[in-house]
Structure formats: structure tokens, C-alpha cells
Write a protein that binds this DNA or RNA. Structure first.
Lengths: 141, 141
DNA sequence: CCTAAATTTAGAATTATTCTAGACTGCTTG
DNA sequence: CAAGCAGTCTAGAATAATTCTAAATTTAGG
């Protein structure tokens, strides 16, 4: 129970996480980071996080939620997802992985990278470089 | 030049397409279908199509553009895409295929199905059924 | 033609997100 | 530790994409 990959560091405190990426550990960023990374991996929208913060009596504005989500994403603490229209989601799992998307509920579920084998992809168009391959398995039912 | 798959029927008129899926061929649906399916496969936003219609002196409201895009999608004439946040796109290619997504420009490019080989996917969660597997290859540069 | 049901439309309303400008705060320095 | 500045936070206005509403129009059928 000591092994950690580059992308899974459950033991880091919110403060350590912010310091590690060079984000100033302000009161609100610390509080939000604690909410986001306390539990296992999650997919949250700005509104979700805002409500959660309110429930925890954390006084933070919606604008700050957006700022923090974007800052965290820019620094690699989160990964932005946009699978269905209307609304972005942020994934606390920044490691390489894929998703199930439940069409009726809009819910997302992680799929471990090794569960999907992509044995061939086309070469990147000239001048371009592949930055990521995202697989979304849409399910109904 | 006679072969056609279920999903590629370049010779159909707009009228035939609408009739085939049971949509009433109104003046505006016909005009929009002509714009959408005249040329090769495309990725258009509501705003794109609206501007294109205006350029062609087609008098249609933006609300109707949205209605038509959604109706066409529901009937399988289009496929909805949402890869980056802000803005949905509609793909005139409804056959099984994937996409390149150019991160800096936001442009999409189709990838033929056979160019991507997915040799294993996880089983659908119990009670669910896989409806589609979407692969997006994000490229930068 | 006449009617009923479907469609279109202008404009208001919603929703998600970003922007603005001023107030506040964390960090560095003296 | 006080001072100051850059970075951050916030309320509220502003934008942008999309949906809704209710009325006017059009299509399909007899």
C-alpha cells in the first residue's frame, strides 16, 4: 500500500498539491482542493462543486469555483471533459484512462487504460502531433 | 459510382431524405437539408448553418435551425458531437467513424472506422448495453 | 378549399460561463 | 513585523448557446 504512480498520490495534502504545481494556496483553493481530492476519483461540474462547497459552509463565489477549476486543470491537477453538450466536467483522475458514458443519466464512469486496447491509430496529420486519445463508450440502458 | 452503403447515399434528394425518415418536408427543412447534404461530409454548428442559410438568402429563424438540427439528429440524418466545451457540432457523416480534434483551432476531421483498431473493450456494466464507441484523437501543432 | 396537426417564428427566458473593477490577502522584503 | 505589490476573490453585469412560449403560418388529407 505504498506504491504510487505519477498520477495517483492520495497521500498528498491539499497544501502540498497546490505547492507542487505552483498555485498559491489561498483559503478557497485549499478548501476546494480538499473537497476534490479527499475521496476517490470524481467527475464534477462547476455547479456540483459550488453546491458541495456551500453544503460544507465554505464561503466561495461561483466565479472562484470556475477560476479554481480552470487553474487546477491548467496545472494538471484536473482533466477537463466534455462529452455531452451543455456543461463541462472535471475529472480528478488525470492519469491515462477512458470513460463509460451513460446516455440516459449523463453519468460518467472511469475505465482503466488497460481495459481498452487500441491496436492501431492513424498517423497524426502532417505538422500535428497526437496529444491524447480519448475513448468514450456510450451505453444505454 | 453506383455502390452505396447504408450510411452514404449521396444521390438522395433532400426531399427523399426527409421522406425516408418521416419528417415533413417543409420549405425550411428542405432548404437546410440541401445545404447540409449537398457537399461532402461536414461538421457544422447551429450558428454556422444559420449564417450559411442567410448567405443563401434562405429565410429561416435560428430557432428553426436548432429544431431542424435536433429533428435530423433524432431521425439519424445527423450525428451530434460535443468534443470541446461550448458549442455542439453536427456531423453529416452518420456512419461509424472517429475524429481528429485539433486543439488549437477546434477543427474536427473524420477518421475512417478502419483506421482505428480497437481490439478490446471492457464489457458494458450490468444492465447496460454499448451503443457506440467514440474515439477522439486530440492533436496539437 | 377546409381543417387539424405540425411547424415556424420573434422574442423572452434559461443556463453555463466569462468578464469587470474594486476589495482583499499571501508572500517577500527591509 | 509593517509595507507593498502581485495575485486572488467577489458580486454583479455581460456574453453565448440554447430552449421556451404563444401566436401565426403551413402542410397533409379528405
Amino acid at each position: 500500500m505504498a506504491k504510487q504512480t505519477k498520477h495517483t498520490q492520495p497521500d498528498l495534502t491539499a497544501l502540498e498539491r497546490l505547492r507542487a504545481v505552483g498555485l498559491r494556496p489561498t483559503r478557497q483553493r485549499l478548501a476546494l482542493a480538499r473537497l476534490l481530492f479527499a475521496q476517490g476519483h470524481r467527475h464534477v461540474s462547476a455547479e456540483d462543486l459550488f453546491k458541495e462547497a456551500m453544503a460544507h459552509r465554505i464561503d466561495v463565489s461561483l466565479a472562484t469555483i470556475y477560476n479554481a477549476l480552470h487553474d487546477f486543470t491548467a496545472k494538471g491537477l484536473l482533466r477537463a471533459l466534455s462529452i455531452d453538450s451543455m456543461g463541462s466536467y472535471f475529472d480528478t483522475n488525470t492519469s491515462e484512462h477512458h470513460h463509460f458514458f451513460f446516455e440516459h443519466s449523463g453519468r460518467l464512469e472511469d475505465i482503466r487504460k488497460d481495459k481498452v486496447r487500441i491496436s492501431s491509430v492513424p498517423p497524426a496529420p502532417k505538422g500535428a502531433e497526437i496529444s491524447r486519445v480519448d475513448v468514450v463508450i456510450r451505453v444505454k440502458g
